[in-house]
Design a protein around this nucleic acid. Structure first.
Length: 776
DNA sequence: CAGTGAGCGAGCTTCCGCTTGACTT
């Protein structure tokens, strides 16, 4: 029996630490929080000074039992959860639930998982910091109040099952605000002038020298005037300036920067990145992946330095200690780095290998010397004009960290690919090959992607490393935000080219504005955001979290009681919630578009039970209103009366076939034909408004053929059971449910009885689950 | 897999942060 029990948060950590501590110590893990506010109702006693009602979480009951038993058997329990607000609370909850006494338990903390750090921690134990725990309770209770007061308002006013919260609602607001910015944006045109000169290089070979005019022109006329002046001009080098410059490496990865770089360099979603990182962590390949710290342990600094020396030599080393700048960082862990920096690559899936390589490079680079660059700027004078051309050159004189890694950026703008300049002398005359004045347009603000939204949230101090990925999923699952691509548009631009003293004036075309995997607000997201902005501007303020964090800091310092902070907030907040419920004259977000010319009834759009819907007439009228869902590419904000009237032309009858009615309509999965209670999707090229009955009949016949090919077998005993070929291989279909067939089984040999057993077995095994996946 | 949207009103939904599994389609 062990005399000592150490409890940490993560099982992987427990395993490592157990090896350091020897046989007198047993190390278990709490798997994060073990207790939370009751799931029924608020879990807060409002009558009793906001007393939290805690319950051991359902999935932790068994674990808590085991911990209790282990605690009883031990002489001393060491509470070793992380050293931050949440970690302190975890230790406190553990000591409550395990009924630990002060004599029998101690609180210890360490920031790195090394033997020295842990032994040192055990030599310097302390007690639980109840002020820090109180700060966490305030955080927890505030979030519960905000979430559970606001969400039901949305159910009533907009649509069931919606949600609002301190973090998610602001995340959606960022997306909505950005979308409105983009819609408002007016692109401005200007003329950018570039010239190509021909000069000899050091071997007397003629090479191109590219230069750009210092200023741009606002109009075509000005650009034209300038080119006219250039027709007879001479060009010469007026000035050459060479100056050294430096580039420094980026700090080691945090959760947020890892998500950004994995998105930019490897194309992973934030969830994907976290799943892969979790695997690497569990396999002992990297340090903990949910962190806001850029700090590396002394041990890691040392081994990284040694690695760089053996790889590249002493002059490539530059030991750097980074400071965390992001708001609200709690720094319970190290930065994300390889556990063993001398391991350049690892075994595993290709995704794991690539992510590991990224982490390895970033860590190594962060401890390498600056890259040194020599920048040369040549100014070129024009004999007939006062404007100057500028040619920029860049030479890498020392590669430094660039030898292994360069951080990517999100900016798409115009690349200045400055390269090495040919040898030039002041006063040298230049021959011009051509001068081009090209119309350029200012870029609209880019939409957020998953990773850039995380970066923005982190910048604002909203959310934590453990919640970035889940928050991004939540706002998508609630239907507030959709990830998607947008095809670009085509636009014309003017290009003026001066060559051989002649000016060519052309109109050219370019594609612009195409976006991939970006976040777009849905109508529901927009309506919910507008509603919350109107009634709860305080909660929706980008600084709300930062402001309450300040309060939590005061609580942690012991300057205020946590219940006081909550009371002040609640007394302001709750009456506004009540007021927002009371206002009920109109459906939130409803927009009246006009009058239906046929019936004279009102035409409007709103959020219905199943999403955005168009409506002819109003509920109070004697005749029922007509409804039609908006199409995927339509928005409540921009849809017109004519668009809506189009929607009501469906479902459209296509006449009869085999004495049964054929109708065409648009459903959840796009346009379809319904005939004899069967649904047939329209191929892309067919338009439901114009499709003919002949084409419809062809599609019906084709569908029947496909169905026959799909069928493997039916049983005379029970025609409800069908053996079918599907997208994922053969399966059994029975009473509208699908059942798997074991891989080794040849489906055509299955008997009726065997099918029935497969169905029964799967029905039995599938009852108790389901919930979590639909929920999250 | 593909009807829905008024009205009656039962019974449900929901937050953020800590952790890891056990799950489809």
């Amino acid at each position: 029996m062990s005399k000592n029990l150490v409890i940490v948060e993560s099982p992987a950590k427990a395993k490592t630490i157990e090896q350091f501590l020897g046989k007198d110590y047993k190390v278990l893990s709490s798997f994060g929080h073990v207790r939370d506010l009751s799931e029924k109702g608020f879990g807060i006693d409002f009558e009793n000074n906001y007393q939290p009602q805690y319950e051991v979480s359902k999935d932790k009951l068994k674990l808590v039992g085991e911990l209790k038993k282990a605690a009883k058997e031990a002489d001393m329990v060491w509470l070793a959860s992380d050293e931050d607000r949440e970690g302190e609370a975890i230790s406190w909850h553990l000591s409550e639930v395990l009924e630990l006494t002060k004599e029998k338990s101690k609180r210890i903390v360490f920031h790195e998982i090394t033997k020295n750090a842990i032994l040192n921690a055990i030599e310097h134990p302390r007690e639980i910091d109840i002020n820090l725990v109180d700060a966490q309770q305030a955080r927890r209770v505030l979030d519960r109040i905000v979430g559970f007061e606001l969400s039901p308002v949305l159910w009533r006013k907009i649509k069931p099952s919606l949600s609002a919260g301190r973090v998610q609602s602001v995340a959606v607001r960022l997306i909505v605000d950005r979308e409105r910015e983009i819609q408002k944006f007016n692109s401005e045109a200007s003329f950018r002038v570039t010239a190509i000169f021909l000069v000899p290089d050091k071997n007397n070979k003629i090479v191109e020298l590219k230069a750009e005019l210092q200023n741009r022109f606002n109009t075509k006329e000005e650009a034209m005037l300038f080119l006219e002046k250039c027709k007879e001009a001479q060009y010469h080098i007026e000035n050459i300036v060479t100056r050294p410059a430096k580039k420094s490496p980026a700090p080691p990865f945090t959760t947020s920067t890892l998500q950004q770089e994995a998105a930019r360099k490897l194309g992973y979603s934030v969830t994907q990145t976290m799943i892969i990182a979790q695997k690497l962590y569990e396999a002992g390949k990297i340090t903990y992946m949910r962190t806001d710290s850029v700090n590396l342990s002394d041990l890691a600094l040392g081994t990284t330095k040694a690695e760089i020396i053996s790889m590249a030599g002493e002059k490539y080393v530059h030991v750097r200690k980074y400071q965390t700048k992001s708001k609200g960082a709690q720094e319970a862990h190290e930065a994300i780095r390889p556990s063993y920096i001398n391991q350049h690559e690892i075994e595993g899936s290709s995704q794991e290998k690539r992510l590991y390589e990224l982490i390895w490079k970033r860590t190594i680079a962060s401890q390498m010397a600056d890259a040194e660059i020599e920048k040369t700027t040549a100014t070129i004078g024009i004999s007939t004009a006062t404007e100057k051309f500028i040619a920029n050159g860049e030479v890498l004189t020392f590669d430094g960290f660039l030898r292994v890694y360069l951080e990517s950026t999100d900016e798409e703008g115009e690349q200045e690919n400055s390269s090495i300049l040919p040898p030039l002398k002041v006063n040298e005359q230049l021959n011009v090959q051509n001068i081009v004045a090209q119309e350029r347009f200012s870029l609209k603000p880019p939409r957020y992607g998953e990773a850039s939204l995380v970066r923005k949230l982190e910048e604002l101090g909203i959310g934590r490393p453990s919640t970035y990925a889940p928050t991004i999923s939540t706002v998508q699952n609630r239907g507030y935000v959709e990830k998607g691509d947008r095809e670009g548009d085509v636009r014309n631009f003017t290009m003026l080219t001066l060559k051989d003293k002649k000016i060519k004036d052309e109109i050219k075309q370019e594609n612009f504005g195409a976006e991939k995997s970006k976040l777009f607000p849905t109508d529901i997201g927009i309506v919910v955001t507008d509603f919350l902005n109107e009634f709860f501007p305080n909660i929706m303020d980008y600084n709300f979290t930062a402001n309450v964090e300040k309060e939590f800091d005061h609580i942690a310092e012991g300057e205020i009681k946590w219940t006081k902070t909550i009371d002040t907030f609640y007394k302001d907040f709750h009456p506004v919630v009540e007021a927002s419920k009371a206002r009920s004259e109109h459906k939130v977000g409803e927009r009246v578009l006009g009058i239906d010319p046929k019936t004279g009834r009102q035409v409007s759009v709103k959020i219905g039970r199943f999403g955005p819907v168009a409506q002819i007439g109003i509920a109070e009228e004697e005749e029922k209103p007509l409804f039609a869902s908006l199409l995927k590419n339509q928005s409540m904000e921009t849809i017109t009366l004519d668009d809506v009237l189009e929607l009501f032309k469906l479902p459209r009858s296509l006449g009869q076939y085999e004495d049964k009615e054929m109708t065409v309509a648009i459903g959840r999965f796009g346009p379809y034909i319904k005939h004899d209670n069967k649904f047939i999707s329209l191929p892309k090229e067919e338009d439901p408004m114009t499709i003919s009955s002949e084409t419809a009949v062809e599609l019906i016949i084709k569908k029947r053929e496909d169905d026959i090919n799909k069928m493997i077998k039916v049983f005379p005993e029970n025609p409800d059971i069908q053996l079918l070929n599907g997208r994922f291989g053969p399966y059994i279909s029975y009473k509208k449910k699908n059942y798997k067939i074991p891989k080794k089984q040849d489906p055509s040999l299955l008997t009726f009885e065997e099918c029935m057993t497969l169905i029964e077995e799967e029905d039995k095994s599938d009852k108790p689950k389901k919930r979590r996946f639909t929920k999250k």
